[in-house]
């Protein structure tokens, strides 16, 4: 190893440390027997206990779960269709509509949906509005993953199916769908994580009634920081980690679907 490489390694180590130290600190303090995130006092599971006795937080977690499952279902169905359509046909409008929400600052989608729900649909903001909003911004991510999978495939398989007399529906059900299934599942998991995590769009489309997880976390951070925040953070990190491992297993060609998304974004 020469000097130049040593510098590269040093710079990389600094960046990795920068990426991981904050998260490690959050996790460590979630086990700290002190109200302050300052010095280590002793090990405790008190903050997790407090979390599981916090009814509002549990309701928020349940609500967020319902939202994430519904939104990821909708986004997976519509996103898979969009991915297929964009790959198969020369479309002009659909790709713009699918990929723009992914590239835009989230606040713009949040604001426009808020105005739309209140003015046009006359909808009381709540779970339904959040589910629709999350579906809207997740469609693009699913479409990107599905299209990436299709792009890596040999088109002649589909032609062979058609030549052998399969109808478009049969070709889809018996050939295309099984082949893109890993991407579809990865897209669903990705949507689920995005939905559970999303703060900005949720912030604008939430109602006043039901507590939602990211909003609850935001309130805790803004109003009264206790290590309970660390505990819920640690649990969420664990959840996301499991999701990513599953998604990565399914998409063995790529390290994770998020890498594909970013690659896709960078190509544009």
């Amino acid at each position: 190893m020469n000097l130049g490489n040593a510098w590269l390694w040093f710079a990389a180590a600094v960046v990795y440390a920068f990426l991981y130290i904050p998260l490690v600190i959050v996790v460590v303090y979630s086990f700290n027997d002190s109200k302050l995130n300052a010095e280590w006092v002793g090990f405790t599971l008190f903050w997790y206990q407090a979390l599981f006795n916090n009814n509002e937080m549990l309701t928020a977690a349940r609500n967020s779960l319902i939202i994430a499952v519904s939104a990821s279902f909708g986004a997976t169905v519509l996103g898979t269709m969009a991915g297929l359509a964009i790959h198969r046909y020369k479309l002009k409008v659909l790709p713009i509509l699918v990929f723009t929400p992914v590239a835009m600052p989230e606040i713009l989608l949040g604001v426009s949906l808020l105005l739309f729900f209140l003015q046009v649909l006359n909808l009381t903001l709540g779970m339904i509005s959040i589910i629709i909003a999350h579906t809207t911004f997740c469609i693009g991510f699913v479409a990107i993953i599905v299209r990436a999978r299709l792009q890596g495939m040999d088109e002649s398989i589909f032609e062979a199916a058609r030549d052998l007399g399969a109808s478009p529906w049969q070709t889809f059900r018996l050939v295309t769908l099984p082949l893109i299934m890993p991407a579809v599942v990865a897209g669903a998991l990705m949507s689920f994580t995005l939905s559970i995590d999303d703060f900005v769009i949720t912030f604008f489309t939430k109602g006043v009634g039901e507590p939602i997880l990211p909003i609850q976390i935001y309130t805790m951070i803004k109003v009264a920081v206790t290590p309970e925040v660390n505990a819920i953070s640690t649990l969420l990190m664990l959840l996301t980690l499991v999701m990513i491992i599953i998604a990565a297993r399914l998409e063995s060609r790529a390290p994770s679907s998020e890498v594909e998304i970013l690659h896709e974004k960078s190509r544009k």
């Binding site: 559970i196 703060f199 951070i221």
Partner: peptide
């Protein structure tokens, strides 16, 4: 993957970590 992994943890939590 090691670059992307922290990016997959909750957005607010990543900001909150710097509050600490």
């Amino acid at each position: 993957l090691l670059v992307v992994l922290p990016f997959a943890s909750n957005f607010l939590i990543r900001i909150y970590a710097w509050m600490i």
